[in-house]
């Protein structure tokens, strides 16, 4: 058995080497590292933000202090309600990060489920699901989201719902394609010939293999969801002004573009930076997880 023992240690170290190589790939790209730093920074803000600054700042209306330019006391100035923009931006991280993560997570779960059933069951079910997806797909995403949130009314929850409704379709389509491809593979045929049930084959074999690429898609999507969420709030379809979501802040600042440019530029740059961070990180993760892009 000496030879097999040696083999096992070889594969053990092989796995470790592969893991190290993946990390190496991830960290050797400076842009990816930059993206990860940004994501880490904003995630930290989202978690400990309310400990750093007064969580009641959005309610802290004080017309005496309105539209003050940046100063030592108010590094990013104050808004038209006299609230400290620095504190609002910090508190906003929690809103923006959670909405983008939640939208991606829920959209992916719904999409994966629909796509998997559609691809594996096929026939009429497939036809029905895919036509629904086609209809939703036919509208430009942002406009559809606008329409939905207009119908539902202004709130954080409705913003979230409208984005999920728009976003799940691309996951459903992609997942269906993955399942169709996976279903044709020999191991699926083999497990049928071994007498495994359809249900088991789908959940134990087809799904795990098909879901993997979806994770890559999801990480790449977080940044764009964040942008869309901010965009919707900017045109006034986001949460109330007392929820310091970044897009809402930009929306509040728009009328004062010339009087107080910091009101619009600082949350704007924040949105840009955060979504850039997620996009860069998503690229990096894709490069590591997708062996076809490896050399």
């Amino acid at each position: 058995m000496t030879s097999t023992n040696r083999n096992s240690s070889r594969t053990g170290s092989l796995k470790y080497k592969e893991f190290r190589y993946s990390l190496h790939l991830l960290f050797s790209n400076k842009l990816v590292v930059f993206g990860m730093c940004i994501v880490l920074f904003f995630s930290t803000l989202a978690i400990i933000g309310p400990l750093l600054v007064d969580p009641n700042e959005p309610m802290n209306v004080n017309f005496k202090n309105d539209l003050l330019p940046p100063s030592w006391e108010h590094p990013f100035g104050t808004d038209d309600l006299g609230r400290d923009v620095f504190k609002l931006v910090i508190l906003g991280a929690r809103y923006d990060l959670s909405i983008s993560l939640l939208v991606v997570a829920i959209a992916a779960i719904v999409g994966i489920f629909v796509g998997a059933v559609s691809g594996y069951v096929g026939g009429k079910v497939d036809e029905l699901f895919m036509r629904i997806v086609d209809i939703l797909f036919a509208f430009p995403g942002l406009i559809l989201a606008m329409a939905i949130s207009m119908v539902l009314g202004r709130s954080f929850l409705n913003l979230f719902l409208s984005l999920v409704l728009v976003w799940w379709t691309s996951y459903a389509r992609f997942m269906r394609g993955q399942v169709l491809a996976e279903r044709e593979k020999l191991y699926v045929k083999a497990s049928k010939s071994l007498g495994l049930s359809n249900f088991r084959t789908l959940f134990r074999h087809v799904l795990p293999n098909a879901v993997f690429p979806m994770i890559i898609l999801a990480t790449m999507d977080i940044g764009s969801v964040m942008l869309s969420a901010a965009g919707l709030s900017f045109i006034g379809l986001g949460p109330s002004p007392f929820e310091p979501e970044w897009g809402t802040l930009v929306n509040r600042g728009a009328p004062y573009l010339f009087m107080a440019p910091w009101l619009i530029s600082i949350p704007g740059v924040t949105i840009l930076l955060a979504s850039l961070g997620f996009n860069l990180m998503g690229d990096g993760i894709r490069d590591v997880l997708d062996p076809r892009l490896r050399r």
């Binding site: 593979k185 010939s193 071994l194 293999n209």
Partner: peptide
């Protein structure tokens, strides 16, 4: 089916990776 088993040509493809 449990009495009749099948071995396919491509062993790599016939196992769940």
């Amino acid at each position: 089916r449990s009495k009749i088993q099948m071995v396919f040509q491509d062993p790599q493809a016939s196992m769940d990776p």
